[in-house]
Design a binder for these strands. Structure first.
Lengths: 228, 228
DNA sequence: TTTCTTAATATGTGATCGAAATTCGCGCTT
DNA sequence: AAGCGCGAATTTCGATCACATATTAAGAAA
């Protein structure tokens, strides 16, 4: 069985093998390196990463609890299949969660926080110009997480990341075609709403941002099968 | 170190050791058998459950990915502490998630589905009369999950369960005092709204249901320290 | 009595191994 | 040619073990 390539990530010395495997698999799913329906095995992953099966099992089990990988009752792991219904459900869920998160973070908005977000947005412009799609994905997530994390008691980010993991492959394909349509830059709209301290406008722009990121992928899904 | 007692659960023959440990620990957290701040060890849990550390590690890691158990960088596991800020955040999150879930399940409401929910509600009345608090907790969760699960593509239930896990100890304490105030039965209100096919009323009743379940626990938290 | 040092204990981690279960390929029957 | 069944190979699962490291306890010094 030929396993798909897993993008490499830096490994800190003070990092357990299990954590390294977890981060690497999570990164691969989040970036869409593993297509929906891909079959995996513990031993195959262990061999590919050069590790023993034990830490792989722990990493995969964690990801299964985040709905990123399915552990079938029989002897198979796979990336969950996507259906139009599930896709719409996930997008709606993502919008509801992120609007909630933004509203709960809103009271903590400050000028320095907004400046930090604007800095990330500038980096995204640079990444887009350089066609660095992985970097673009990473920065986009960083932008959203930084905003929601302003709330020091936030408990919603892990849930949002679970949804991101499930949308991973499609989110990525949307970003690949992001430049084609030259859509309005929703992050700039969000930043303007933040500067005006306008929560409604922020939520509206955020909703459009998520929609934009999903529309194309959704169309592709409805037309051309799961991820082609 | 004396570990707290973990309520026993039935073990199906066709169930891996890891899954058994996961379900048992999850049940213990959900029912509030483990107080916030409780320290645990892999080997201690393994000894208490009569298993080897390997499946325990997999189970605990899964629960850590659901924010039910913290795996500290040093050599300690613990049930997360609760603070007033985090508590309010979790309650707000729970309301947002469950209202979303109810709205997305609403189009699938049918007379038989409503009858099934009413059946669970009757069982809850019986459990309340019999002072079966564990059964009451279980049935309450079953009521909510059955409703949200009417949507065949739902992806929100795992997220809601993660929040339940984090609120577990307090949710339970709220139920313990549920009879004291003789509050209106929110589930009956929800059922009435369903029969009238009135989404707004359903969401309103659902919001009150979650509020009722949290108010007392929250008051206790604010007054008397974490979980006394 | 308090604090710092040091030895002993306990713990997390990950590789390895045996057993049980499942899948896959091959040959046979229809 | 298609479906079925049997055996070999692969895989998961969980226990065990060795090692490194953190924690705890004890004892000495202040």
């Amino acid at each position: 069985m030929i396993q798909p390539e897993l993008p490499e990530i830096p490994r800190d010395a003070a990092m357990t093998t299990q954590e390294y495997a977890y981060l690497r698999l999570r990164n691969a799913v989040m970036l869409g390196a593993l297509r929906p329906g891909t079959a995996l095995t513990f031993r195959g992953l262990a061999g590919q990463l050069g590790l023993s099966p034990t830490p792989i099992r722990e990493a995969v089990r964690r990801l299964s609890s985040e709905s990123a990988i399915e552990v079938l009752g029989n002897r198979r792991l796979r990336i969950p299949e996507m259906t139009p219904g599930r896709f719409e459900e996930l997008v709606r869920l993502r919008i509801a969660l992120e609007i909630h998160a933004a509203a709960r973070a809103f009271p903590w908005l400050s000028d320095v926080a907004i400046a930090g977000l604007a800095g990330i947005d500038d980096q995204m412009d640079a990444a887009l110009a350089a066609r660095d799609l992985d970097g673009l994905t990473r920065l986009n997530q960083q932008f959203h997480k930084r905003l929601y994390g302003l709330n020091p008691d936030q408990a919603v980010i892990p849930l949002i990341e679970s949804v991101w993991l499930q949308l991973g492959p499609f989110q990525r394909r949307a970003i690949e075609h992001l430049d084609a349509g030259a859509p309005d830059d929703r992050h700039k709209e969000m930043l303007a709403a933040m500067r005006a301290r306008d929560l409604d406008a922020l939520c509206a722009a955020l909703g459009r941002d998520v929609q934009d990121g999903s529309i194309r992928a959704g169309q592709r899904l409805l037309q051309g099968g799961a991820g082609e």
